[in-house]
Amino acid sequence: MKIAVLSGKGGTGKTTVSTNLALTLNIPYIDCDVEEPNGFIFLNPVLENEEEVFLQVPEIHKETCTLCGACVKACQFHALAKAGKEIVLFEKLCHDCGACKLVCEADAVTFRKRAIGKIQRGRTEKIQCERGILNIGEPMAVPIIKKLLASLPEETQFIDCPPGTSCNVVNSLRFADAAILVTEPSEFGLHDMKMAIELVKKYSIPYGVIINKDDQTENMVKKYCKESQTPLLGAVPYSREAAIIYSKGGMLCQESSYKKIFEEIAEKMKEVFRWN
């Protein structure tokens, strides 16, 4: 089972929850938040290997190019433009679709590799960990996310999704069998959680909610879950102690006061997702 951990907005504690649950359940952790992959800071795995991720971008050969402009018209992403006596490439807009070569009757298009990021794999004492890292200045995270998730083994994994509900999240969620939505008890948290729920529903996969920084009152998120019959998997209380542990890069589940909380959440997950 692939369990996606997502949130409608950043800063809710998605990575805190996913890393602590991964350790509690001894389940491999995959960090798909490739623009800001923070999970390794807390899990601190020993790196075992690393590989670069490439896109294929076109090269237009002037000696054979007839400047017909067919490649420019075919590019839906405006990565090519006809400027005077040459075809100009804006390589960071290229999506590696290959349409430019298909329409070039002069056979003036070839491809070269362009590195956009990397994938790292490592291991803690208990679990396997993987993450994607997007190179600074690169605009497209999806190719790294797809490569990271395309060859996952059948065993259960935690997929730490990017924040929000963008195409990066959609491409992470496509591989999931269940979803955990992490939110906080605030107007913004509730609003964006509802957006994330609508996204999860499109994939018809079971889901549940975890409240982070819980104020331990009958707050708006708990009321929403009760009224909408949304499974509430548990709540991580807001405390100064948690903030101190987090700021030092520590794991909450290794502290006695929080260990039981994550163990109870893990049991609730198995009940809601019918997962053994």
Score class of each variant (00 low, 15 high):
Glu48His: 05
Asn49Leu: 03
Asn49Gln: 07
Asn49Ile: 00
Glu51Gln: 05
Glu51Asn: 04
Val53Phe: 04
Val53Gln: 04
Val53Met: 09
Val53His: 02
Phe54Asn: 14
Leu55Lys: 10
Gln56Leu: 14
Ile60His: 01
His61Ile: 08
His61Arg: 09
Thr64Ser: 09
Cys65His: 04
Cys65Asp: 02
Thr66His: 13
Leu67Thr: 08
Cys68Gly: 02
Ala70Lys: 15
Lys73Arg: 14
Cys75Phe: 05
Cys75Tyr: 04
Cys75Ser: 09
Gln76Ser: 11
Gln76Cys: 00
Phe77Arg: 00
Ala79Thr: 09
Ala79Gly: 15
Leu80Phe: 03
Leu80His: 03
Ala81Asn: 07
Ala83Leu: 14
Ala83Trp: 06
Ala83Arg: 02
Ala83Phe: 09
Gly84Tyr: 00
Glu86Asp: 13
Ile87Met: 05
Val88Lys: 14
Val88Leu: 15
Phe90Tyr: 15
Glu91Thr: 14
Lys92Pro: 08
Cys94Gly: 07
Cys94Gln: 03
Val103Asn: 06
Glu105Leu: 12
Val109Pro: 03
Phe111Gln: 03
Phe111Lys: 00
Phe111His: 09
Arg112Pro: 01
Arg112Gly: 02
Lys113Ile: 02
Lys113Cys: 02
Lys113Trp: 00
Ala115Tyr: 02
Ala115Ile: 13
Ile116Gln: 04
Gly117Lys: 12
Gly117Glu: 08
Arg121Tyr: 04
Gly122Ala: 12
Arg123Cys: 09
Arg123Met: 11
Lys126Gln: 08
Ile127Met: 06
Gln128His: 06
Gln128Lys: 10
Arg131Pro: 03
Arg131Ser: 01
Leu134Ser: 10
Leu134Ile: 06
Ile136Pro: 13
Gly137Lys: 10
Gly137Thr: 12
Pro139Asp: 08
Met140Val: 10
Ala141Met: 07
Val142Gly: 05
Pro143Ser: 08
Pro143Asn: 06
Pro143Lys: 01
Ile144Asn: 12
Ile144Gly: 07
Ile145Gly: 15
Lys146Arg: 15
Lys146Tyr: 05
Leu149Met: 09
Ala150Gln: 05
Ala150Lys: 11
Ser151Val: 05
Ser151Arg: 10
Leu152Thr: 01
Leu152Glu: 00
Pro153Arg: 04
Pro153Asn: 14
Glu155Phe: 01
Gln157Trp: 00
Asp160Phe: 11
Cys161Val: 01
Pro162Met: 13
Pro162Asp: 08
Pro162Phe: 12
Gly164Pro: 13
Gly164Cys: 10
Gly164Met: 14
Gly164Trp: 15
Thr165Met: 08
Asn168Gly: 08
Asn168Gln: 11
Asn168His: 11
Val169Trp: 03
Val169Thr: 12
Asn171Cys: 06
Phe175Thr: 15
